[in-house]
Design a protein around this nucleic acid. Sequence first.
DNA 1: GATGAATGAGGCTTCATTCAT
DNA 2: TATGAATGAAGCCTCATTCAT
Lengths: 208, 208, 208, 208
Amino acid sequence: MADPNRRRTEKRDLITEAAVDVFAEKGFHQARVSDIARRAGVADGTIYLYFKNKEDLLLSIFEEKMDVLLDGMREALEGVDDPVERVRRFARHHFRQVRENRSAAEVLQVELRLSNKFLKEYRPEKLWAYLNIFANIVRDGQASGVFRPDIDPFIAMWGFFGGLDEIAMQWVLARNQQRIQLEEAARQVAEIYIRGMLTNTQTTSEEP
Amino acid sequence: MADPNRRRTEKRDLITEAAVDVFAEKGFHQARVSDIARRAGVADGTIYLYFKNKEDLLLSIFEEKMDVLLDGMREALEGVDDPVERVRRFARHHFRQVRENRSAAEVLQVELRLSNKFLKEYRPEKLWAYLNIFANIVRDGQASGVFRPDIDPFIAMWGFFGGLDEIAMQWVLARNQQRIQLEEAARQVAEIYIRGMLTNTQTTSEEP
Amino acid sequence: MADPNRRRTEKRDLITEAAVDVFAEKGFHQARVSDIARRAGVADGTIYLYFKNKEDLLLSIFEEKMDVLLDGMREALEGVDDPVERVRRFARHHFRQVRENRSAAEVLQVELRLSNKFLKEYRPEKLWAYLNIFANIVRDGQASGVFRPDIDPFIAMWGFFGGLDEIAMQWVLARNQQRIQLEEAARQVAEIYIRGMLTNTQTTSEEP
Amino acid sequence: MADPNRRRTEKRDLITEAAVDVFAEKGFHQARVSDIARRAGVADGTIYLYFKNKEDLLLSIFEEKMDVLLDGMREALEGVDDPVERVRRFARHHFRQVRENRSAAEVLQVELRLSNKFLKEYRPEKLWAYLNIFANIVRDGQASGVFRPDIDPFIAMWGFFGGLDEIAMQWVLARNQQRIQLEEAARQVAEIYIRGMLTNTQTTSEEP
DNA sequence: GATGAATGAGGCTTCATTCAT
DNA sequence: TATGAATGAAGCCTCATTCAT
């Protein structure tokens, strides 16, 4: 295919992938644009044909990766209606993504926090969409009487996500990554939140 | 009091407090050393009489603030033996500290994550000591049969702390800080974890 | 000629020449990198595309100028076999170079001595090669019985070079450079060393 | 003696000696005033009670050391009338001073060249007085018909001193100082100059 | 579109010097 | 006379970004 749009896309992807790796390795501030260019096999200036500036590159990575995460999470929850089971799957799938794409996870978790612009000016809509999936699970569970009605879905959402995120960060930072079993961590956090949110009359049968 | 040691300490404290404010406002990288000096009312060079360099200033703030947090948390838990009540107090006190010292919280939570050195080389012993307080509450609860024995205190610790931390960060970042009621958030996260960790035979009486 | 290598070389040379002038005028420590950049008509940063740092610029000048000096001296001695005449030519050519390239001489003689790195760590191979030309003249003269065998070529070399160097420095430093006639100085130092090193049976016929 | 002037002098000497050592070790620019103060066992500010500034300290050392050198040289030549023998003694005594006071020699030879002010503005009268001793030996020799009248005492002086100086510098810089035998070097340079300057009818009997 | 040489603003840090005690 | 904490000017270097080719 000699479609110029195709080629344009290819070069853009080269840069994106290189940037993920370099940001993950060195961190956003330590990463030099020329490092990314070299790794992508393009000239420094080429990056500015596809991205406004270094920060735009970081945010673009975030947007693109979050699209993948969002789609993946929606697919993972597809056909599962039980709120309890949806909580389990959410945690399990989140960590699976982290493990399958360590560099991207590192960039998303560690480096994005570094950008003041990101934190204070940029509104991460995609992240909210991702988190809202969880908030809606809680709301659905409350509607069907499974979860206690006095739980604030907003607080539960941040608390749950913060927990997953912190564990993922420890895993990413750990030199010896055997130390944290992501599957087991997913199961435990999910069970704590499930039991913690269940109405008193409910009883959980542990997942098999 | 013309004690020279006293004066020395005073100047150092001036710098520390100024640095907390400036780092919180502008972020570590955006903060210029001369900004800090001006706010502290000292010359630029004076900062280097007390701190090795800009990063050392950041890490020193971390150490000093964590000492305060550690002492405060130990005091807040003093005399409380019931693990369940200790979990509640941990969450409540953590958020209280965040709210009473917004700038310091901002630096600790947001800016420290930005330093590669902090995350990858510096071992934040003080943070671990802080977190271990929670892990030990879990262990104590397990020993007394209140909390389920299959809970991994390590995972619970990171999950719980990550949740508190994320909520605190949202509060710090929120322009309108009414939106998140820290007391209520503390109560909810604590209750979720408590119920989530209780053995099946236990029942909680909600705190009054 | 649109040869990019040509242009690259041109810019490097611009910087080198500017640096020679500025170092000669102000001295190494007093010379600011921005002075050199301005004189070369380039941006400050451009200098760092060609040189690692300010000191590397100084050492590069040394290497490049010594190459020229070495070639020039070899050429000046070409075809002259008589050790006595070679000594004369060495002195004469050395001072000719000094006068034709006053700034470079100033940098080489005055400023290089200022760099601890140069004196204590850097091994000036090129300078030794230059000096060895003289030591070999002495050795040749000893082999052919013209110069006394008890002369240590090493001591003669340093003594001779030191003498030329000191006279050149006085000439460089003198505000009124008429005061020292370099040609006459060359002749006198050469004659002293020649007579001083001749075996007793020899007689010199003064050069015409 | 509780004479305050005595004490004043003592402290000044402490500083001078410390400065000689530190300048010799680290070089003028690398030497910090506080290094000198610490080595002298005084406060930084105390140095400024005795010296105008860092450069004045360097120049004062030069003046003081040159006084000693001058007196020493005059004494060493006292009672010796033969110009030939005076040349020998000059070289021998110069190197003896260098060896007996290595740090001072290092400062005088290496570091003084580094100060633009010294080289371009400061007129080293004492150095000239020292050198003039040699120029006068040449003049005396010419007056008594021992040295050739066409020798320019000025050129001979710089050439001779430059040679001694360069050899001394190589000795100072040499890690293994056995490599250069200063006594032998003194003898050789002196003999070269003596024979080189003698009138044709003269013959030297080598020194015993 | 692609290149990469060139740009130049910007800030951390050092250290000689001062001065209140 | 002595101190030493405080000062603050000054400059090397980096690196994101541009633009002529």
